[in-house]
Design a protein around this nucleic acid. Structure first.
Lengths: 116, 116
DNA sequence: AAAACCTTGACACTCCCGTGGTAACGTTGG
DNA sequence: CCAACGTTACCACGGGAGTGTCAAGGTTTT
């Protein structure tokens, strides 16, 4: 069966051996171990390493961000607290007082038009 | 009405003025502006600044992590990709081959017992 | 018009993340 | 037994987060 050592796994996934150990420390992927402590990467692990790499590249993420997403999944208290904060939020410019902000924007446009 | 300037808002929320500007740059809270560009913090903004501070402290988060959570909320493609990766994952030690990992753990326990 | 604010931009410093490398030591296989 | 490979534990370094401070200039208040 294909169980690869760390350098072999590195070669076929595009990560470095160093990074595979680092990924393990973040908790995102814990490979099995042999009796003597060697890491062994099975087919599933290899696949997830490849898809992880693609995920990070496609959305320009870091390992810490995926790790945080995992934390959100597992810690419902955290998830609910964060969502609560995000949800009761008047997202963009807060209150729009017409004689303040709005006029500010208006004048900015006028200035831009006048510059042309 | 209570609309505070940045230093006043800083005083009543526990942040520094510098940090309020920084928070704004992360996109987490955009205060309104007066016609001349001054930031004005209304009661809602003040409240959310306080709860934000509490949120960060309680779960030991950074602003970037909350910002990432917001990104997850707004970008469904990202959210689904991340969840897909997290979900098809044999979380803990992958495959457990009894004559490898399991024996490793067993012997560790024996060593510990023998040390006593 | 002067004092007391505000704004943006820059320099700087600390700490963490993502990497690589190296050293010291154990394991595996010819 | 020795070469090749694995393990952990360090040092190092560039970049980003978080934070302060200061400069140069506009605004508000008195």
């Amino acid at each position: 069966m294909e169980t690869l050592t760390i350098h072999e796994a590195a070669a076929t996934t595009g990560w470095s051996a160093r990074m595979l150990r680092y990924i393990e420390r973040t908790g995102l992927l814990m490979p099995a171990r042999t009796a003597s402590g060697y890491r062994v990467y099975g087919p599933g692990a290899l696949q997830r390493l490849r898809t992880l790499k693609e995920l990070l590249g496609r959305f320009d993420l870091g390992l810490s961000e995926v790790a945080f997403a995992a934390r959100l999944e597992n810690d419902s208290e955290l998830r609910e607290a964060v969502q609560a904060w995000l949800h009761d939020q008047p997202r963009r410019p807060e209150h729009v007082k017409p004689d303040d902000w709005l006029r500010f924007e208006q004048e900015k446009h006028e200035r831009l038009l006048q510059a042309a």
